[in-house]
Amino acid sequence: MTSKQDKARIKAAVKRRKRETYTPVVPDKQLGFVHNNVDCIGCRACEIACKDKNGLSAGPRFRRVQYIEGGTYPDVYAYKVNMSCNHCESPACLPTCPTGAIFKRKADGIVDIDSTLCIGCRRCEAACPFGAPQFDPGDNIVKKCNMCVDEIEAGRKPYCVMACMMRVLDIGSIDEIWRGSLETVAIGPADKVSKQVKNMANIELTKPSIGFVAHSKGKVK
């Protein structure tokens, strides 16, 4: 466990490193995901849709529906936290890239990797606190979710969102998601959106563009 002092030092170090290597892109509008941890049945259709869309073999999982469970029999609980790339405001992956393959789009804040520039050094993989960039041993490069930019440019939504059988995963302007003003069925009438859930990396590290409807046991105080 890091002490308060350590955290401050880490923060300063991260800040220094970013300043030296990278001029942050301030997107016109930042897109982000929203996921309802409680109502998600954990079916992983989104994961498979993503694999199919991105032509991945077994191995890299851009989208990961994580199962959380706890309690003691028979008083138990379970919920899901669904995450792919959070297209962070300050992506930790980006400044680590020695070839400039990683970029953040001005228009919508999507973070992507140019596969022709990637040399597969895997530094970004280590830098990301959420496990978004993943090495594909078949192609020898790192790949990750790009929010299906081709679909977004065609005026549609990413494959994972359109695959969600429960309609609990969506995208939208992250500010609207956090404010709870996004028009989406992913957020129920009585639901509140939080930026973070339990056991997730400190969001100050990268400022991930994601919102959750957290389970009562998954709330961060």
Binding site: Y22, P98, F103
Partner: peptide, 10 residues
Amino acid sequence: FLKSAAVGGA
């Protein structure tokens, strides 16, 4: 170049 390319986009 890399530094500027990293900014990305057009």
